[in-house]
Design a protein around this nucleic acid. Structure first.
Lengths: 330, 330
DNA sequence: TTGTAAGCGTTATCAA
DNA sequence: TTGATAACGCTTACAA
């Protein structure tokens, strides 16, 4: 690898001048600038990012923390972030937290050591008061995740609305017995509380009382979906519709339902969440809630880069709209 | 951020000694080692990777180049690579090439500038003679991709066998008219040539002549699958079975077939490739070729780390086995 | 067994 | 408008 000194030598100028050219500083004559550029070209010179980092420069690298990259929701989100970042001249370091607190902290440390300029968190494992101090070392943006009273930009979806319109759709289709699956708990606080609230609100407005037996917490995978359906099949009083927390759960439920000759949506209507490619491949095609993943990723990158350029920037919360995609499963 | 000097000061020892402790050098007395450790603890010290890199040390960062992270095959592969690497104390920089030659080169440059210790390539966009020179700067391992006569370790699947057993399975089921989809071309050389050969071999052994009309090249997505099925539907002489290049194509074909009341597998048998989660969710469940993605990822990381420790290591090709998963679509 | 000092490739400061 | 020099945090001869 050639260095700045090589370029200086070849162009007959000083390192300083070369550095100025690299960084587009003013006060370099056109003439010398061209000499430098030519030498750089000739040597195939690329600045060494480690040296720049060490020197305290920006690194044009962003970190993204995702829980699991194999979850399509996150892989699409990462894709959008990566593409946007690349166009803006940034690299992306993708970190998979695996829902592990320690691993999350390890990645946040990259900020401390200037490995990344900023971090986009798409999920949070540790308490905010543990994470908060890292904001001293660089911008942190929350994407698809939020914390009350956190003084960082938040790019999020209106999960409440998503659930509300989904459940309402079921009610309009004539359902009264509506089960509900969530990836979190059915608490007032904590993960997915907004979705829970959307479900409760929609039912309440329709004068429907919640049946606690039809609430399934901590559900995530296809397999979980199958299990939920099994439980439903054993009930004397079965729900006629289910609002699920993800297309995968919905898919799992559909498989199991079919295995027991239950017709969707006639015997049981099912609604997913995410609008993954899968949704269109299921039979019947899945009614689901579409989240504008690409937009979220794009916005997150824009915001974090803006913070980099303007650290005083006022932190805002950006809410993306969410929509119901009606297909055949409801 | 505290530095090595801070630790030295606090522990009353020299930077050198601290450095020795960090790097587990011998010749540090137990006593001093503990002093250092204590000081590090107290200051919450983390070595600055940029400084280490600059100094020419290993970076404990590996790069992985994938074409598209949203492709489940690659997201699972990346997942496996990331997990294995993390356990071995390495971070992973994930690079999405988007099948763009320039982007691939940009990432390979990370090796030149010591941003990553080594790179695992899961696809290759540029000609090998363009990539080859980068091996001077650090190990490159090919995973799921290969190049003849390349002097780098290769971790790959026996694609020939995968296709051969799949097509043979169709023949054993009584099919004679077997269509074939590939992501590449139907050339002797180039992408997917091994799969092509497997198809040809299986047919030849059964004394079946290939019908060129039933060869579909350059197929990748769900949408492609739909289009292929449309074309088949318009044929006077239709194939009774299709070997596809991916579960997605297979899925697309199934959707379209159903839309036209064609029964799978009775009217047309379909076989996928990859055994993605999707395969089990389709109706009928998809017969497909399973690739041991996790194993491949693991092996790639093991090999590349070994090369880092032992640069003289002889390069080998590792071939992973591949198997047929028979479900309901054949 | 420990410490001193040089150097990795940059950029910022200061002087010319 | 240009250049010499110090500094970023670390490791490694070399010396003690």
């Amino acid at each position: 690898m050639s260095t700045i000194s090589d370029v200086a030598k070849l162009s007959g100028l000083s390192k300083t001048t070369v550095s100025r050219v690299i960084n587009n500083h003013p006060y370099v004559s056109k003439e010398k600038k061209e000499q430098v550029l030519k030498a750089m070209e000739e040597l195939g010179y690329t600045p060494n990012p480690s040296a720049r980092r060490l020197r305290g420069q920006l690194t044009t690298t962003l970190g993204v923390i995702v829980p699991r990259i194999v979850n399509p929701f996150f892989s699409y989100l990462v894709n959008s972030i990566e593409q946007t970042a690349y166009h803006k001249g940034y690299q992306v370091l993708i970190c998979q937290s695996n829902e592990d607190k320690e691993k999350e902290l390890a990645f946040l440390n990259l900020l401390k050591t200037k490995q990344v300029d900023g971090i986009i968190m798409t999920a949070i494992e540790n308490d905010w008061n543990i994470i908060q101090p890292f904001t001293d070392y660089g911008p942190i943006v929350l994407c698809n995740e939020y914390v009350n009273h956190a003084d960082v930009p938040i790019i999020r979806l209106d999960q409440y609305k998503g659930t509300y319109i989904g459940v309402k759709h079921l009610i309009e289709k004539g359902h009264q017995k509506i089960a509900y699956c969530t990836g979190g708990l059915f608490d007032e606080q904590g993960k997915d509380k907004d979705r829970n609230y959307g479900y409760q609100k929609a039912l309440k407005e329709a004068g429907i009382v919640i049946n606690p037996k039809w609430i399934f917490v901590n559900q995530h995978t296809i397999e979980d979906g199958k299990q939920v359906m099994k439980q439903i099949l054993e009930m004397d009083d079965r729900p006629t519709a289910v609002f699920t927390g993800s297309d995968e759960i919905a898919g799992g439920m559909m498989i199991e339902a079919k295995g027991h000759s239950l017709r969707v949506p006639d015997d049981i209507a099912i609604i997913g969440f995410d609008d993954q490619p899968l949704a269109e491949m299921l039979d019947p095609k899945l009614t689901t809630i579409r989240q504008p993943v690409d937009q979220m990723g794009e916005k997150s990158v824009e915001v974090i880069i803006e913070m980099l350029h303007n650290p005083e920037m006022k932190t805002e919360t950006y809410e993306m709209s969410i929509e119901l995609v009606v297909r055949e499963s409801t």
